[in-house]
Design a protein around this nucleic acid. Structure first.
Lengths: 165, 165
DNA sequence: CCTGAAATTCTCTTCAC
DNA sequence: GTGAAGAGAATTTCAGG
């Protein structure tokens, strides 16, 4: 499906504040409230917008430690096998299969380093896991769910910024 | 600050649907709308809830490729130096310093593999970057911003689930 | 700390154009 | 796409538990 600049502007407004009113968004992007609503409804139907969520400070809920864990798996392990296994661990907030030496990369959130260790133990206990390699996060520098245009981004001559919302 | 189970339930409701009405949330958690509003206001003031955002399908905006890039930096590179540099690249959606061999781990979103390559080139051009090691994401298995209780999570005897919202 | 209600204001939603 | 109008929700305030 095709998104025009107005759709992108509306998405950007909703990413910044999902509780903004249609009138507020309309004022910002140059449309009437009803036109904004119609576009938002369409963006949700087509799946461009999948929902609205609260941004929560993990530390406020006790999740003060994060780590990345590389998984090295047995020869014929399928992505879905890994997916099923890591889905059982709520501490795994992100997981994907990747190119390179490791087969998968997990992002885990935990209450402390001891908790990280226990989660890694459980992952390592999966029969298809040959070994793991972990990195504890020292300091978070950037955390955005999406690509957004920040102040004066350096975009080169081949303007990839075409897609930046 | 202290969060009780009602606060966690409200946060969970808002994470699932940030546009739910106070009455809806109240019905779900067993409070009146005005009590919910009072608590949500407090959760925002104390910083537990930092805002409300739209969940967007990156592919709908053209971001179909993602990669993780490990950064190996010169001896005395500070985290903020890395932060400033990667903040200039809108494609970097997440960045942190980590323990282990690499100094930092970046998560980048791009339109295609060629675009990934260009972003890595720009990162590698930073004077403090000694070398990089990249992994392209093959398939995403899990993507949640936060730790949430999923169906029947296996939680061991030392119940870390105390903090799961 | 909660409820429930009333009054005001604002927002959503629909519809004609 | 706009604008208007009725339905519905948010907000604020209050008395009372």
């Amino acid at each position: 499906m095709e998104l025009d600049q107005l759709d992108r502007d509306i998405i950007r407004a909703l990413v910044e504040d999902a509780r903004a009113t249609y009138a507020e968004i309309g004022h910002r992007v140059g449309l009437s409230a009803s036109a904004v609503k119609r576009r938002v409804d369409r963006l949700r139907e087509t799946g461009a917008i999948t929902g609205f969520t609260a941004r929560v400070e993990p530390a406020a809920l006790g999740w003060t430690t994060e780590a990345y864990v590389e998984l090295f798996c047995a020869g014929k392990t399928s992505p879905s096998e890994i997916g099923v296994a890591v889905s059982r661990l709520p501490e795994v907030v992100s997981a994907c299969t990747i190119t390179g030496e490791a087969d998968a990369l997990l992002h885990i959130r935990a209450t402390d380093v001891r908790h990280v260790e226990k989660v890694i133990e459980r992952i390592a206990a999966e029969p298809f896991v040959v070994r793991t390699k972990s990195s504890i996060v020292l300091s978070r520098l950037i955390e955005t769910p999406l690509v957004t245009s920040r102040d004066e981004p350096f975009i080169g001559p081949h303007n990839e910024s075409a897609f930046i919302i």
